[in-house]
Write a protein that binds this DNA or RNA. Structure first.
Lengths: 251, 251
DNA sequence: CAGGTTTGTGAACGGTGTAAACCGTAAGCG
DNA sequence: CGCTTACGGTTTACACCGTTCACAAACCTG
C-alpha cells in the first residue's frame, strides 16, 4: 500500500481521452450505428491510428466500452431498486432484474456487447478493476442482503459438486462474496442458477428468438421469475412482487 | 397444387450452386475463419459479385447457411436420440438436449450463427420451407411423443395468459403442433419454458460467461435439466436419466 | 438460327482494422 | 535552464470487407 501519488498532468489528459473514447462510442451505438474504430476516431476529430495509443486493437475497444456500459446499466438497475424502501430486499432484487430485462430490450446492441460477447481471454479490461460495480456484483449483493434477512434454505457447500464448490469458494466471475462465510457460499450457487434462467429469457427475447406476442407481454419473463422465487424463500411474497413487476413492465 | 414439373437442367445447376455455397461456407467456419461473401466466392473460384445472383445480400447468406447448419445439427441431435430404443421417449429427449449442448460447445461459431443471430425480418430464408427439420421441431416432437406416452399434467390452455394462448395455438416459431389437439397446446408452453432454460445455460457456457470449472464439469447444465424434469413427469426416472446424461457428457 | 434470359466478370466505391515510419511537443531529468 | 526522451498524433499504405453497375458470355427457347 504505497502512498497514492496525485495523477500527473499527462495522466489526467490520458484519462480524459479514455473517457471521451467511451463517451463517443456509447453515443455512436446509441444512434444505432456500428461501433467502429474509425467512426470513433472520426467523431473525436482524430485519425484512426491514433486510437492505437489507447487500445491495442478493436476487441480491446469493445471490451473497454462494454465494461463502461455494464457500469452505467448497473447504475440503472440499482436506481430501480432504490425506488423501494431499503428493507424491502425482495422487492429491490426483483426491481433490478426487471429493469435489467427492460434495459436489454431497449438497448439490444449494448446487451449484445456486454452479455453476448464471446469472452476469449480474461484480463482484457485495463481501466478500473473488474471488482467494481458490475451487474453481477449488484445482483449477488442484493441476494445476499435478502438472504441475511430471511435466511431461506440454501444448499450446503459440502453437498455441491466439486467443480461448483471450487467456483463458489473462489469465484472468477464477478460476485459479491464479501460478508459471506465459507459455509454460506451455497447462496452463490443459487445466484448462478437464477442468473442462468434470467439470462435465458432475456437473451431469447432480445435476439427475437421467441414469439413476438410473448415478448411483448413479458409473460415468459414473469413465468421464469415465478418459477425461481420459491428458491429464495419468496413464495408467500409472490403476489405482491408479481404486481410490482407487472407494473414496471407496463410503465 | 399443380403437377410438380421435373427440374430443368438450369434449375438443377442452380440448386447445385446453392449447395456448394453452403458447403464452402460451413467448411470455412469449421476452420475458424470468418464467414464472408468474398471468402466464399474466392473458395468457389468465382468473383464476389457472382454470389449476388444467389443471395440478395450478406445477411441472406448468413440466414441461408444458418438454416442449413440448423438442419445438419438437428440430424445430430436426432442421431443421438436414435441410440436409444424407440419407446424410451424420456431418454431420447434428454439425449438430444445433451447432444445440443455438446454440439454448441464444440461449434460456438455455428451456435452463434443459428441461435444468437438477431432475427430482424422473417421470410429471410428462401430455399426449402421453414417448416422442416429445424431443431425446434425435433424437440417439440420428442416432447409430444413423451407426453402422449406418460400424460404428465400440462397447463390448461384456458389458464394461460392471453398472449401465451395465442402463441401456442397459432405458433410463428418452429414447433411441431401436428397431432396436438387445441386443448393440448399447453404442452407447447411447457416446451417453451424448457427451451428457455436450456438456452440460458448453453448460451452462457458457449460465450464463456460462466466459471470455466462449471462449464468444464457441465454441472449447471445438469442442474438445469434436473430442475426441469419434474415438469414433464420424469421425477422417478431422473436417476437413470442423469446417469445417461453424465455418460454422454464424459464420452 | 434469332432473341431473350441467366450467369458470371471487371472495375470501382466506400467502408473496415491494422502496421510502419515519421515528427512536433510537452514532460521530466541532470 | 537546457537536453533528452517518450508520448500522442499524422501520413501513408495494405489487405480485407459488402455492394453496385455496366458489360460479356453462355444458355435455353421459340
Amino acid at each position: 500500500m504505497g502512498t497514492l501519488r496525485q495523477p500527473t498532468r499527462r495522466e489526467r489528459q490520458r484519462e480524459a481521452t479514455y473517457d471521451e473514447i467511451v463517451a463517443v462510442s456509447r453515443q455512436l451505438l446509441a444512434e444505432g450505428a456500428e461501433l467502429s474504430l474509425r467512426a470513433v476516431a472520426g467523431r473525436m476529430g482524430v485519425t484512426p491510428p491514433a486510437l492505437y495509443r489507447y487500445v491495442a486493437n478493436y476487441q480491446e475497444l469493445v471490451d473497454l466500452v462494454a465494461f463502461e456500459i455494464d457500469k452505467a446499466a448497473t447504475a440503472r438497475f440499482a436506481a430501480a431498486a432504490d425506488l423501494l424502501p431499503e428493507d424491502d430486499h425482495a422487492g429491490r432484487l426483483l426491481m433490478s432484474t426487471t429493469e435489467f430485462r427492460q434495459w436489454a430490450l431497449a438497448n439490444p446492441r449494448e446487451f449484445g456487447l456486454v452479455f453476448a460477447n464471446p469472452i476469449a481471454d480474461a484480463d482484457c479490461i485495463r481501466r478500473e478493476q473488474l471488482t467494481l460495480a458490475t451487474s453481477g456484483h449488484l445482483l449477488t449483493g442484493q441476494m445476499r442482503a435478502l438472504w441475511q434477512h430471511n435466511h431461506h434454505p440454501i444448499p450446503a457447500v459440502t453437498d455441491l459438486p466439486a467443480s461448483v464448490r471450487e467456483a463458489v469458494t473462489d469465484p472468477v466471475i464477478p460476485a459479491e462474496t464479501e460478508g459471506l462465510g465459507p459455509d454460506e457460499r451455497g447462496l452463490i450457487w443459487v445466484y448462478m442458477q437464477g442468473w442462468t434462467q434470467l439470462y435465458g429469457v432475456v437473451a431469447l427475447e432480445v435476439f427475437g428468438h421467441m414469439d413476438p406476442r410473448i415478448i411483448e407481454s413479458g409473460e415468459m419473463f414473469i413465468d421464469t421469475i415465478r418459477n425461481f422465487v420459491p428458491r429464495i424463500g419468496l413464495t408467500e411474497d409472490w403476489p405482491r412482487l408479481e404486481a410490482m413487476v407487472r407494473a414496471r413492465l407496463a410503465g
